[in-house]
Design a protein around this nucleic acid. Structure first.
Lengths: 145, 145
DNA sequence: TTAGTTTATATCGTTCACGATGCAAATATA
DNA sequence: TATATTTGCATCGTGAACGATATAAACTAA
């Protein structure tokens, strides 16, 4: 009974599981360089544009600052980023890449392709990727309200 | 530069974000009954089949027992499940629903539809759901290795 | 200018996730 | 039957997530 409660009919469980397993696929590649997956996401944001306040990084990742702040402090302790008070707005903490943080981009150059290949299969191919991206983006937009 | 490192090109970030946001959509509905989303997943498993050892629940959710054990202890403390040593195999802990745990199914009867409606949009409809499910299932199967 | 409000970040507490490790019960092997 | 291995679960430590709350700087309005 209760078809609607079956695990097989749950979108959220699939997203939750796919997310966890794919994050696990990153783990050995990132762990080698002392990084976690959320820290890698911060690097993606800073590689695109260096020197951003905490709030901009959090917004870009759709996370709260109370998640990002401790994460950034760990990255600062690892010497990957620096955090300094904003000049024009003293409330802001500006996060900048160190040389170590910048150099990680070269060291992680194979990561996107390696992980990308790990998910390729019958229904998930370079051709079907865009359609999947659109659906996930729409779900995200819908839930951001 | 470095198209491959752009956040917009990352499948994992989309899965991670969609999973988090959809879990957040469950939060008010479940919180009303003192439940978290992972606890709700355990209930889905036990509503399908009551009285399962910890290992079977963990396998069904593709989680480790060291994640599930503390979670079950919290649910036991809430009076939602009981945990008792297995009769035939004393290593096993058999998890059973209490009346409170069974009764929650009625109280949460609207949850699947409410959350389901929350994700409906242009590209995600009852018609496109099956295709999305297949892709996510394939990704999950691929990564389970 | 002062008082009230908003904004940016930080702190705290709770609950996952998960790698590493420990331990006892069950099973396999010598 | 004694010993070794495997299995099932638990414990510990670390790093997210996130709600609630705090604090200081910036802004707004009286």
């Amino acid at each position: 009974m209760e078809e609607k409660f079956k695990l097989e009919n749950q979108l959220c469980f699939r997203l939750y599981t796919a997310s966890r397993l794919l994050t696990q696929a990153y783990h050995p590649l990132l762990g080698e360089h002392g990084l976690t997956y959320p820290q890698y996401l911060v690097l993606l944001v800073l590689w695109e544009k260096d020197a951003q306040p905490v709030n901009d990084i959090a917004k870009r990742l759709l996370l709260e600052t109370n998640t990002v702040t401790p994460l950034l402090k760990r990255m600062e302790a690892e010497g990957i980023v620096t955090r300094s008070k904003g000049k024009e707005d003293a409330r802001q903490m500006i996060v900048k890449l160190t040389k170590k943080g910048r150099d990680l981009q070269q060291k992680l150059t194979d990561v996107p392709e390696t992980v990308g290949n790990a998910v390729l299969c019958e229904s998930v191919t370079p051709e079907t990727f865009p359609g999947l991206f659109v659906m996930l983006d729409d779900i995200i937009d819908q839930l951001k309200q």
